[in-house]
């Protein structure tokens, strides 16, 4: 008698599909993985759906419509472990820019009949609605980290997901600091590691797509940005992207004003 394989489910909320696509981008690992876990619910990959409960659920996307508040509760109830994958599920995503603005006004920019569109005025992370076992960062997630999370789950160990900043990865990679050398503003000092310091390796500043690291020193970095010649507008644009709703990116400028 063979042991039952653990079941894996993948769920999508408001998002671009990129994080779940990362799983299909594991070209070398996909078929071995499918032999180790039972892919029980992954609509993008298969029309065969196995009913829950599921041992591990990967959740992509943020909560932006009323019906998804109920749906995420159902997913949570059907999942032994729930891991959010990517900036939308973990921080609300780029669509959380609506949280700083007037959502009905935004709908009127895109749609002639905004009354046909049912949407919440906010985009919120999964953790604002249900308990989450782990949050994987990135826009998109790194597929190596995604495989690490699944492997750790199968081995019933803690995943090895470093919590230091992109700066550490930059040093490991041997990059020259773009902020020191070129005066290019870079969010690396406050951004969660995981990408392997990609942007500095391509001669540009980090744009924070893995979101803020724990205990980020925002006032210090903002002072450095100002020394690079970046004003309030520029700083706001840099922070208002894929993790805009995550603290301390969300209120770094306000906090700076308060502390003056």
């Amino acid at each position: 008698m063979t042991a039952r394989r653990p079941t894996l489910a993948v769920w999508k909320f408001a998002s671009c599909d990129g994080c779940q696509l990362s799983l299909l981008d594991c070209e070398d690992e996909l078929l071995p993985l499918a032999g180790t876990v039972e892919i029980a619910h992954f609509l993008e990959a298969s029309s065969a759906v196995v009913n829950g409960p599921y041992d591990l659920s990967l959740v992509e996307g943020s909560i932006t419509v009323p019906s998804d508040i109920e749906r995420i509760s159902q997913v949570r109830a059907a999942s032994r472990r729930l891991v959010t994958i990517g900036a939308c599920a973990t921080a609300g995503g780029i669509q959380a820019l609506r949280n700083f603005a007037d959502a009905p006004e935004m709908a009127a920019v895109v749609y002639a009949r905004p009354d046909y569109v049912r949407t919440l005025s906010t985009s919120t992370p999964i953790s604002a609605h249900v308990p989450v076992d782990l949050e994987l960062r990135g826009c998109p997630v790194d597929k190596g980290q995604l495989l690490e999370v699944i492997s750790a789950f199968l081995a019933e160990r803690r995943p090895d997901i470093p919590s230091y900043s992109v700066c550490v990865e930059c040093k490991q990679r041997g990059n020259v600091c773009v902020m020191v050398r070129d005066g290019v503003p870079c969010l690396g000092p406050v951004t969660h590691a995981g990408c392997g310091a990609l942007c500095p390796a391509y001669a540009r500043g980090c744009y924070g797509c893995f979101g803020p690291m724990d205990s980020a020193n925002m006032p210090s970095l903002l002072a450095t940005f100002r020394a690079c010649g970046v004003g309030d507008d520029g700083i706001e644009r840099m922070l208002h992207t894929y993790n805009a709703w995550a603290e301390p990116f969300r209120s770094a400028l306000d906090d700076e004003v308060d502390s003056r």
């Binding site: 932006t64 995503g93 669509q95 820019l97 609506r98 935004m106 709908a107 920019v109 895109v110």
Partner: peptide
């Protein structure tokens, strides 16, 4: 697909 309003929040960007 929940609307994400890209065309709206692009206004004001560089």
């Amino acid at each position: 697909e929940p609307p994400r309003f890209f065309e709206a929040f692009l206004r004001g960007r560089a």
